[in-house]
Write a protein that binds this DNA or RNA. Structure first.
Length: 490
RNA sequence: GGUUCCUUGGCCGAGUGGCUAGGCACCGGUCUGCAAAACCGUCUACGGCGGUUCGAAUCCGCCAGGAACCUCCA
């Protein structure tokens, strides 16, 4: 079963066969959160998209090092390298140590990621823990002639760089265009050109987070952390750099410029970008204030939400669309995801109930390859889901008796769910979680259903309905089948 | 204004030249003491106008509408 994974490379705007630089090793770097607030639905998209890729690489037996950074410094509040550090601002408002703010939101971020069943990356470096390395990178860029100091700050010389390389290679912009369309901003007198960006900023007196450097007491620019940390942990040539589409410019463009200015060659082989989550057709984001926090989904507390949605519903919802499509939030779409996910999990939990036949009357064997084909085609999780729904349909039909399956095919159906739905798509099976050490609890429900069955055989509908209705009221779902009643906690 | 992209059935959402994606909802049926679940069936769409082609949702052009980036943003 030859696997040829194809991924879309933003750099070339084409689907390319994925060939690791150093098989069986794969290095991937993804831009993580700036920890000055809780994660919203938009943050779940790259986390889940690249978690899928991480899981799939591991499934394909690659040795993956997945680096996802924590931005805890250097991310400016306003435009063009002026303004205030986001972490520092939040810290002053809340009268906290900056690192206290970082730790608080980082813990909450991790909780949300755990809930979404997003695996922890191999390394989660903090920008603030790599100030020395960032200073070294900046020195190297200055040495190579692509940056200059100005009044204690250091700026990247974009126009100089562009004469030797190509600034705009990723975002397909050109400098002339940018010079004519970029706004003139206050406080840009330090820069030689308005397209230059900061590598190091001298701290203003009220700025809390500051480090000593050859140029000033200050702090690093936003872009330099990713260049520095990605190369530190993955080398000066590595496979994949991912992030949200909105980071393509300027962040990733600047990273490429910094990388190339340091190493004199392209560092990243494949650039991958997930698309945005929209709400009412518009990007869910901080500036529009139209975001819904993940925790608000989990408990249903946001006013736009008709109900609470479980973390797995959110994950399923995101995976139902291809990662390069925008996906529009709505209660209807989320409810459809919730029901669809339950349909798959219900089918999975009923596999044991299929009675074994000598011959299969339907084709199970091709499903696995179809799922691989879908994943190999630029991680098309939506198609994988469609095949899983087909598999669910076969399970249900087999239980209903309209199709027959051999022991081997039944085992394969279960394996397909285990491999694709749980291991690779990362859906956690939260159903019937009443198992752990609560066998007695389950047996008690079984006993109630047994009494109900006896009542039914005596045509004592009052008793049988009472048991069913009361259990339903408590929160159980009772299904009557040919082989007796089943139950689960809703 | 510049760059890039999108427009699929009631809703969501795959699909890059021919072969019913899938999910949710609705409706009809089977099953059931009733219900739920399950199963079967119905609904078969591709913004508009032209063009290329034996054949286009899929390629090209124009028009309309929408979005992202161009300032922090996943």
């Amino acid at each position: 079963m030859e696997q040829k994974l194809v991924i879309y490379n933003t750099l070339t705007r084409k689907k390319e066969i994925f060939e690791p630089l150093n098989a069986p090793h794969v290095g991937m770097y993804v831009c993580g959160p700036t920890v000055y607030g809780d994660a919203h639905l938009g943050h779940a998209r790259p986390a889940i998209t690249f978690d899928l890729l991480f899981r799939y690489f591991k499934h394909l037996n690659y040795k993956v090092r997945y680096v996802r950074n924590i931005t805890d410094v250097g991310h400016l509040e306003n435009d063009a390298d002026e303004g205030e550090d986001k972490i520092g601002k939040k810290a002053r408002i809340e009268q906290l140590e900056p690192m206290e703010v970082v730790q608080f939101y980082l813990n909450r971020y991790h909780q949300a990621m755990d809930a979404l069943n997003v695996l922890a990356p191999s390394i989660e470096p903090h920008a603030s823990g790599h100030i020395i390395e960032q200073i070294e990178t900046i020195k190297e860029i200055i040495k190579n002639g692509y940056a200059y100091e100005s009044n204690g700050s250091v700026y990247f010389d974009v126009e100089k760089y562009n004469t030797d390389y190509n600034y705009g290679i990723l975002s397909h912009r050109n400098i002339e265009e940018m010079l004519s369309t970029t706004r003139e901003l206050d406080g840009q007198h330090e820069k030689r050109s308005k397209v230059d960006f900061a590598l190091w900023k001298k701290a203003s007196p009220e700025h809390i987070m500051r480090w000593t450097s050859p140029w000033s007491q200050g702090f690093p620019g936003w872009h330099i952390e990713c260049s520095t940390m990605s190369m530190k942990y993955l080398g000066n040539k590595f496979d994949i750099h991912g992030g949200g589409l909105d980071l393509m410019f300027p962040h990733h463009e600047c990273e490429i410029a910094q990388n190339t200015a340091t190493e004199k060659h392209q560092v990243v082989k494949y650039w991958m970008h997930n698309n945005m989550i929209t709400i009412g057709g518009q990007k869910m984001g901080k500036s529009l204030g139209n975001f819904i926090m993940l925790n608000e989904f989990f408990d249903g507390s946001h006013k736009l939400l008709a109900q609470a949605y479980s973390p797995m519903t959110i994950r399923f919802f995101i995976l139902m669309a291809h990662y390069r499509s925008t996906v529009d939030f709505s209660n209807e779409a989320l409810q459809a995801s919730e029901k669809g996910l339950n349909r798959l999990l219900d089918a999975y939990s009923r596999i044991e109930k299929i009675s074994v036949s000598e011959q299969s009357t339907t084709d199970i064997k091709s499903i696995r390859q179809k799922c691989y084909d879908a994943l190999n085609d630029d991680l098309n999780s939506a198609i994988v889901m469609a095949h899983l729904f087909d598999a669910a349909s076969m399970i249900n039909s087999a239980i209903g008796g309209s199709v027959h399956l051999t022991k081997v095919d039944i085992t394969e159906l279960k394996a397909i769910f285990d491999t694709f739905l749980f291991d690779i798509l990362g859906i956690r099976n939260d159903q019937n979680k009443n198992g752990n050490g609560k066998e007695a609890f389950g047996k008690a429900i079984d006993l109630l259903l047994q009494i109900r069955a006896e009542a039914k055989s005596n045509k004592d509908w009052a008793t049988s309905d009472k048991i069913r209705d009361e259990l339903t009221k408590i929160g159980f779902e009772i299904k009557d089948g040919k082989e007796g009643a089943e139950w689960k906690l809703k």
